[in-house]
């Protein structure tokens, strides 16, 4: 009971610190500090409440236990990370995004494709990924290739739709301007339409970055070699090694946020001119 009370005390302190932070002069550090304080408070409270109420580690292990599992099985986690994130998610992401981008260019050039391919893209996007994954595993085998294929199917449509929409983003006047310069298709594309489309394309890339990891992990539930984050999560849960499962979840959370963050950072550099990015 003492530990639960201590948890409430930590919560009060965390709250107090954040109120103090939010009353300081505004700056970039504030959001970082308040987020950190919030996270640290939550983790400490989790630890205190779980040990204080003697919650079974199968239901929810304390952070200290997850941390121990994390440190003692870094080689397993690393191998799983390479298998699932680098080989499955990342290669699927690159293939899916490039394919969607090139398809968008083709669709944009031809009205026929616009009428034919967009509905097919719509149709593929509507397929439940849980239903598609076992089939793709059968087609492409247990290794990372099938995971990449699931990722491609998942991210193709959001990137395609955003890119097609982006290619329409350049205003009529800006196109007329290119016309008066007697610019060719490729010149207009590279000097006007792609830069104008960039905010839309990055939107698609950001959505795809979160979908890619989910797709790669879920696909492993339907068959994988004895390595991979999804494999570890499903077998770990079966063996009641919940601390290892949680350690994988921590890896997935870190990798997923870092991936999204990197894409968002590139977006910031590439579309600095857009009203939403101007400082």
């Amino acid at each position: 009971m003492m530990l639960v009370l201590a948890a409430l005390g930590v919560w009060a302190i965390g709250w107090g610190v954040n109120i103090w932070v939010s009353h300081q002069k505004p700056g970039r550090w504030q959001s970082v500090v308040s987020a950190t304080v919030f996270g640290v408070t939550a983790v400490i409270m989790w630890q205190l409440v779980v040990t204080g109420l003697e919650v079974s580690p199968v239901i929810l292990p304390p952070p200290s236990m997850i941390f121990t599992a994390f440190v003692s099985s870094t080689d397993i986690l690393w191998a799983d990370f390479i298998q699932t994130f680098v080989k499955g998610a990342l290669s699927g992401y690159v293939i899916g995004c490039s394919a969607a981008f090139l398809t968008a260019l083709a669709i944009d050039r031809s009205n026929f494709l616009k009428r034919g391919l967009l509905p097919i893209g719509n149709f593929v996007a509507a397929l439940p990924i849980i239903g598609m994954a076992p089939i793709l595993v059968m087609w492409f085998g247990f290794d990372w290739q099938s995971k990449a294929a699931v990722v491609v199917v998942m991210i193709f449509f959001p990137v395609l739709v955003n890119t097609v929409q982006g290619l329409d983003a350049a205003g009529k006047m800006q196109r007329d301007l290119m016309h008066t310069y007697a610019a060719g298709y490729w010149q207009s594309l590279f000097k006007l339409r792609l830069p104008a489309a960039a905010p839309f394309i990055f939107n698609g890339l950001k959505i795809a970055s979160t979908l890619a990891l989910i797709g790669a992990i879920v696909a492993e539930f339907f068959g994988s070699p004895i390595v991979g984050m999804g494999f570890r999560i499903s077998t770990g849960a079966g063996r009641l090694e919940l601390d290892l499962v949680w350690a994988e979840i921590v890896v997935a959370a870190i990798a997923g946020s870092a991936f999204y963050g990197i894409v968002a950072l590139i977006e910031r550099k590439a579309t600095f001119w857009h009203p939403s990015q101007r400082k």
Partner: peptide, 29 residues
């Protein structure tokens, strides 16, 4: 043959290019 320059009702400068970059645009083309 680029016999004329056209100025539209709005400036229509490309926001991802500097002023110099915008003026260079037709020259690059």
């Amino acid at each position: 043959k680029r016999a004329y320059g056209f100025v539209f009702q709005a400036a229509g400068l490309y926001p991802w290019r500097t002023i110099a970059g915008n003026i260079k645009l037709p020259l690059e083309i």
